[in-house]
Amino acid sequence: MPFEKSPGWLDWYANPSKPRFALPAGSVDAHCHVFGPGERFPYAPERKYTPCDASCEQLFALRDHLGFARNVIVQATCHGADNRALVDALERSEGRARGVATLRGKPTDAQLQRLHAAGVRGVRFNYVRRLVDFTPADELMDIATRIAPLGWHVVIYFEAPDLPELWDFFTSLPTVVVVDHMGRPDVTKPVDGPEFGLFLRFMQENTNVWSKVTCPERLSHSGPPARQGESAAYRDVVPFARRVVEAFPERVLWGTDWPHPNLVDHMPDDGLLVDFIPHIAPTAELQRKLLVDNPMRLYWPEAVGRLA
């Protein structure tokens, strides 16, 4: 029986523009997803939304169209802890993709080794209440302890008001910790205000913490460009992302977030999202760190020496 999309679900942008910004050679789209296809990889019974199908073949076609060399595919909450769609995408990528999985309970060493062989290099802990039910902290800590010897990291997804409550747990994790979307700041508040200041202090005081400066389309109140190629797209997000890039140039990542789950007002043109990059990373050096050096160091460390 086919899956029916959640009411109001927006499908991904079918004809993205070609970016004006030329990506550095070897650039990595370090945050994207695959959904299903549901007939092959059924969505989780406990899911809180049913998306459109978005296959790895479509993702890789977008990769090539935009000019990326590699992808980091993050397990989508609609698949729960069933990582089969993710693993299939990694195995079809011919070594050009790495993955971030979702784990629950007590995975065996053999299960972890199979995921590692497929290309998984991280585990995502989701704290956004509208998307998932929280997993107990002791279970997550056990998972983090188990993956640390593999050289994996933990990806955390939370919203800015929840950081004070979660701070102690996050700072106790024994791995590199990568924050999704800058902790979802409220960009109507001052970039120098206390809420975003707490996030910057979180990164400053914990040198194992990285951040994805991603998803301006989720964070913005000024919205998408009024016309194709307009440089002021998502302009209210620029000061926040640029502050993180310039303060922590060795610990930032960028990705498209394709196929953009759970957007309700508009679906972004991925080509214009790429054109957002030079506004937050204004120099060639910052662009190379953001798009090449940092993701390669985290996801393909074995290749870094060969590429130097």
Rank of each mutant, 00 (worst) to 15 (best):
T188G: 12
V154Q: 10
E94G: 12
N294S: 15
L198E: 12
P107S: 07
P51F: 12
C52V: 00
F68H: 03
A233H: 15
E94R: 15
R104C: 09
V264I: 03
Q58V: 01
R251A: 12
D275K: 11
A101Y: 13
L131D: 03
R218C: 05
S55T: 01
L131G: 01
F41A: 03
W258C: 01
L115D: 01
R40Y: 06
V72C: 07
Y13C: 05
E94K: 15
R114N: 05
M1S: 13
W152C: 05
E39P: 03
P42Q: 13
A148C: 04
V155T: 10
A25Y: 09
P278W: 11
P19G: 02
F134Q: 13
H33T: 05
D186V: 08
G67V: 12
N294P: 00
C52A: 05
R104I: 11
C78E: 02
E165D: 15
E302P: 03
R227G: 03
M296I: 11
G271N: 04
H79W: 04
P51D: 01
A247E: 14
L200T: 13
L62Y: 00
V209W: 10
G105K: 09
V252N: 06
R124W: 11
A22P: 01
E246N: 10
L163F: 13
V237P: 01
G36C: 03
S231F: 02
S6P: 00
A61Y: 02
D29P: 00
A144G: 13
H65D: 03
A233L: 07
I277L: 01
F202T: 05
A85D: 04
P45Q: 12
R306N: 06
I277V: 05
I143R: 07
C78H: 08
P224T: 11
G229H: 14
W254S: 09
R20S: 04
G8N: 02
M296P: 02
K106W: 11
P194R: 08
A97Q: 07
L173P: 03
G80L: 03
G119C: 07
